[in-house]
Design a protein around this nucleic acid. Structure first.
Lengths: 161, 161
DNA sequence: CAGATTTCTTAATCTAGTTCATCGTCCAGG
DNA sequence: CCTGGACGATGAACTAGATTAAGAAATCTG
């Protein structure tokens, strides 16, 4: 139910739903003062995405979420989620683990951005999201690992030799 | 009850306690493959510190926590925390807010590291921790904002002109 | 206080990554 | 069919920040 480049959440809105990706791929990204996009998370098929800290705190989101290919998503509103927790306690644990992993991976990315070179970050990306590499435009990958598309292109060129 | 450079947590251990800084200043940092330190958080007087994701998940921590000046800390074990939650419900909210803020600031730092220059990150640091600037060795500040001590020194030199 | 060790500064050189400009390709729409 | 727009590749010039080395300050420690 989403075309390519369709928005699910724009910064400034308060995020009310979690989105489960049935098929396709979404991304969450921030816009900086110069208008550049910085992708914080990809959500391929089977993943959840949203701005958790906006959902939890009910404050305005700093992130945008949109689709980078035609996708199908299920929305779960925060209220429904909370009532589900009461009805099906195992779900609470499921989501708690999900949130924990999000926190861990956000911290890992910070460490890696501080300590790894662009080449290493690209390798890491290839390990983490092996399926995505051929499925999404590589300018998005560049934005995710924090380099320009031109430089990523150069890195990929080196690999072949 | 801590001298300078005394460890509270070493990577590989499972963190069991949260630490409240009564006086002094601690830091949490990661060591990369080349032995460089990357400081993720400072905890001056009145702040909490620990490796939350290790505490929650009971997995081995990737972080080290030590004191960068003589400090006094109170330890609160995870079990005590959980029983406190039952006895004093308001505390649960207090810690939930604390955790949320941690998540938000971790995400903010990621965005800022991707989008800001070293100079801007230093300015941001001065705004966020105005007290720390004159209280801790500036090599730690360099490590926090992700530059070499030499380069931070150069930045500070520029400011005066 | 003297010596030792840690911290800060300065300057020269080097490099990873950016910026800008150009070109070929691959489509989608008319 | 052709045309305009997104995408990727490539290369040259440029820059932020790292590295190295050295000396000056500052701070332990006995």
């Amino acid at each position: 139910n989403m075309k390519r480049k369709e928005f699910l959440l724009k910064q400034g809105q308060v995020a009310r739903d979690l989105a489960f990706v049935v098929d396709g791929c979404l991304r969450a990204f921030a816009l900086d003062d110069n208008g550049f996009e910085h992708i914080l998370q990809f959500a391929p098929t089977g993943w959840w995405i949203s701005d958790m800290s906006s959902v939890i705190s009910r404050r305005e989101s700093l992130l945008n979420v949109d689709s980078i290919k035609p996708s199908q998503v299920l929305l779960l509103s925060r209220e429904d989620q909370l009532t589900l927790f009461d009805e099906v306690p195992r779900l609470e644990r499921y989501f708690r683990v999900l949130t924990e992993n999000g926190l861990v991976s956000s911290r890992m990315r910070l460490i890696e951005n501080l300590s790894l070179t662009a080449r290493q970050r690209y390798q890491r990306f290839c390990q983490t999201y092996p399926n995505l590499i051929n499925e999404i435009p590589q300018k998005y990958i560049a934005s995710f690992i924090g380099v320009t598309p031109e430089f990523l292109s150069k890195i990929r060129g080196e690999k072949l030799s």
